[in-house]
């Protein structure tokens, strides 16, 4: 590991002042489960690392004063989210956290850190850059775990966050702050992610001196209860990343879906909102055939690479089973 300077500020204002506007000069450290490995392998070589875990503004779950939303501090640990009484009804979020299936990751990873996890692409992790020579290494090489959507440009990695599909399905918004504490913008969580077009960009829209401070979740309304679920297709037992994932939220009235939002994970450089498939669910009762039709629609425009066509079927299955799971129907798959 290269050496670097280190700071562990307590206030958001101090945190932002410690971050450099120059890309790569400073890195934000949260739980450490991702960044410390990247530092050790010299994939990232910042001059300064700033630990956000003690920043007070990034802690806890708060009701937003105007009502209608909960603000989740980005430095909260995943096990704290899982056990928080105000978050009980967000089923997809809990299923995604449980899906990590490692006590250590649940206790150590933070909400913001998990959402900003760097891609697991083995070319990126081996030091070939986020795009791996403009995508050439991935196009010509071993791309079995790479993107099956949105992969025509140089970016062919898959978005690494396992909470993002669930939170996007739940209509979460991201609160970004910086470079000054007064500069604050709120974006739908799906807009936090971008498909980079060159090595000067990363996989989120965060500037080097900007931080993800909070996640806003719409508060459950008793008159329009939302059912949600997350489903991951995994290789087997073990801490590996899923091969495909999906999450969905369904607003069901009198047995009929009024609103639906289906999101695929691990299939594109960003979490992928499946609009067409979501629309197929609206106005109908969820049953096996309807869920399968939506699953097929979710992957209809997939463009697999040379070695990952198998992921198309896995993504279809993940979408179908997430929908069935949210509706309380048997998925036909293995799931804890």
């Amino acid at each position: 590991m290269n050496n670097f300077a280190y700071a562990q500020p307590r206030r958001l204002e101090s945190l932002l002042a410690l971050l450099s506007p120059t890309p790569g000069e400073t890195e934000v450290l949260a739980g450490g489960t991702d960044l410390v490995g990247l530092l050790r392998e010299r994939v990232l070589t910042p001059e300064r690392v700033v630990n956000v875990c003690d920043v007070e503004e990034l802690q806890g779950v708060h009701e937003v004063p105007e009502g209608g939303a909960l603000a989740l501090g980005a430095a909260m640990r995943l096990d704290e989210l899982h056990e928080h009484p105000l978050l009980e009804s967000y089923t997809a979020l809990h299923q995604a956290i449980c899906g990590l299936r490692s006590l250590q990751y649940q206790a150590q990873s933070t909400l913001g850190g998990e959402l900003c996890r760097r891609p697991r692409c083995w070319y990126f992790r081996a030091g070939h850059g986020l795009l791996a020579d403009g995508g050439r290494l991935i196009r010509e090489g071993d791309n079995r775990y790479h993107a099956i959507f949105d992969n025509a440009g140089p970016a062919k990695f898959v978005s690494a966050s396992r909470l993002a599909p669930a939170l996007i399905a739940l209509d979460a918004r991201a609160v970004l702050v910086g470079p000054e504490p007064e500069y604050l913008s709120v974006v739908p969580l799906e807009e936090l992610y971008q498909t980079p077009i060159d090595e000067s960009q990363r996989e989120t829209i965060l500037q080097p001196n900007q931080v993800l401070a909070q996640i806003l979740l719409p508060q459950a309304d008793a008159s329009a209860a939302v059912a949600s679920a997350a489903y991951e297709v995994r290789h087997g037992e073990g801490p590996d990343d899923p091969l495909a994932a999906a999450a969905v939220s369904l607003q069901i009235e009198s047995g009929v879906v009024r609103q639906a939002k289906l999101v695929l994970g691990q299939v594109a450089p960003t979490p992928r909102v499946a609009d067409t498939a979501s629309r197929l669910l609206v106005g109908h009762a969820v049953d096996q055939l309807r869920a399968e039709a939506a699953g097929r629609a979710a992957v209809a425009d997939a463009t697999p690479l040379s070695r990952n066509e198998y992921k198309v079927q896995l993504a279809e299955v993940a979408a179908t089973r997430a929908i069935l799971k949210a509706a309380g129907l048997a998925t036909g798959g293995f799931d804890e």
Partner: peptide, 9 residues
């Protein structure tokens, strides 16, 4: 929601 989020922060 930015103003509300700012209040929370």
């Amino acid at each position: 929601g930015a103003a509300a989020a700012a209040t929370v922060l």
